[in-house]
Every structure is written in C-alpha cells, then in structure tokens.
Amino acid sequence: MADIFSLAAGNLISPIILSFVLGVAAALARSDLTIPEAVAKGMSIYLLFAIGFKGGVGVAAHGVDAKLVGTLVAAGVLSFGLPFIAFGLLGFMTKLTTLDKAAVAAHYGSISIVTFVAATSVLETQGLVAEGYMVAAAAVMEAPAILSALWIVARKGGGASATKGLYREILLNGSIVLLVGSFFIGAITGQDGLNQIAPFIVAPFQGVLCLFLLDMGLVAGRGLRDSRGEVGGGAIAFGLLMPLVGSAFGLMAALAIGLSPGGAALLMTLSASASYIAVPAAMRVALPEAKPSIYLTLSLGVTFPFNLTVGIPLYTAISTTLAGG
C-alpha cells in the first residue's frame, strides 16, 4: 500500500498535471489568462486524432483477440450501469431533484476523453503499454450512459425530450467520429502510417497536452469560482467518491477480462471519469430543466481535477500491483 501511494505522489510532479494546476490557480486568482475557444477546439481535435491513430496502430501491431470483444462489451455494460449507481449514491448523499440527479448520473456513466488522454500519457511516461483498442472502449462508453439517465427520468415520471435527432447527435458526436475514424486509419495504415506522420502526432503530443490541460484548468477554475454556493458539500463529496466507485468496477472488469496493467489502468480511468463534452450538450437538449451549474461543476470542477491529480496515479499504481505488472 505504501508503494502505491509513493508511486501516486511521484506522478503528481509532471508537466501536464502542473500545467492544469497553473490553470486552476490563474482562474481562481482572476488572472486575465485565457485560451481562445478556437485554439482549445483545435488542440482537442489534435489530441483526439493522435490518440485514436496511435490506438489503431497498436491494434495493427498486436492483432485482434477475444479480449477486444470482452473489453468493448464490458465498456458498454459499465457505461449503462454506472449511472444507476451514481443516481443511487446521489439520492443518499444529496437533496438534488430527480432531474438533476439523473443529469449528473449521465455524466458519471460517460467518460472524459481528456482524462483518458492524460492517463495514456502517464502510462507512456512509466513505460507501461496498454492495449490499443482501449481507444475503442472509450468511444463505446460515451453514449450508453445518456440512455440510462433518460430511462431513469422516464421511469420516475420526469419529462425528457429525447427526439430522434438527439440519438443521431449522441452517436455521431464529433469527438466519437474523430476518435473512431482516426483509430481505423491507424489500424489500416499501421506502423508505416505512423512513421509518416510521427513528427506531427508523436513528438509535439506532450506539449500540446500541457497547453490543453492549462486551458482545462482555467475552465475548471472559472467554474469553481462562479458556482460557489450552487453545489453543496454532499454533491462535492459525491464528485470525489464516485470516481473511486467507478474505478473499482473498472478494475473488476479489467481483472475478469485479463487486461494488461496499462489496459486495466485505462479502464479504471474511463470508469472513474465524468463527461464534460458530449453529455452536457445532450442534457441541454433532453433535460433542459436540469441545472448545468451542478453537473458541469461536479464533472469539470471536482471530478476532473481529482482524477488528474490523485485518481490517475492511484489507478495506475493499483493496476500495476493487482493486474500483474
């Protein structure tokens, strides 16, 4: 156990985590430091393309096996199931309305792709190799949680306006299309394809990730600063507890499938993370009465920083210990 915590503590001192901390500190101090929206979107496109492509190259190198199918099924089940656990925990820990609880639950069943990218980066730094198809698992986990949340609301008699267009938007969400598309390009072109564009998608990756996490820190810090009083202590405690609960389910699934320590760390990270790109947009359409100030603050202001600073190092250390690293 002491080894786990010393490993986790060592991971805290890295450029990507310190960049995020700088962003949060700057926002809380009301600095005028900002990253323009277009630059932030450009960096997110770059990171998604790079991570998807490299995942596809990994699959091309190691081939497809039964674990891939098991991982994708587990990813779908986790995304469907975690919102029910989150909804139950919220009922126990907070006094939020059914709509707010369902909206928050949807965020915690879905995933944060930036947390996934950061975890991948930490694994690379430690020399741990994860299964390339974990990128596909990330894509699978984006949407099912939204359906679970809408089902919860419908069952509780709430009003969800889930139109046909909503499902198309969820499934063809830009980040999913880019991630899956670049994954297939990487799988088709393999190592030769990677060699052709490596100077663009490998070498600058860590630097771009630092700048992107600086931006995430600024957004998270602004969210925290502006939402004081909106989110109670119970909800904040949920935002810190739920990632640990989710990661425990991710770990159990990873051990059952027999994933490598790197793959287990990534499945734990995916299960622990909360969406702040795809799900907020879907909730604004389907559950407009749910308060964005609650679910965005919890997802981006509480759980994202927790996962980045404490969660990822912890999940990596636990998976390395338990998954046979």
Binding site: E37, A40, K41, R222, I277, A282, K291, P292
Partner: peptide, 16 residues
C-alpha cells in the same frame, strides 16, 4: 440567471 459565462476555452456545445 444561471450566472456569468464565457466562451473562452470551451470545447463543448453544452455551454456556449
């Protein structure tokens, strides 16, 4: 009514 917001740094369609 939902408080101040800015587009800076936002990458989600959920908040703009």
């Amino acid at each position: 009514r939902s408080g101040p917001w800015t587009r800076d740094g936002q990458i989600s369609r959920g908040s703009g």
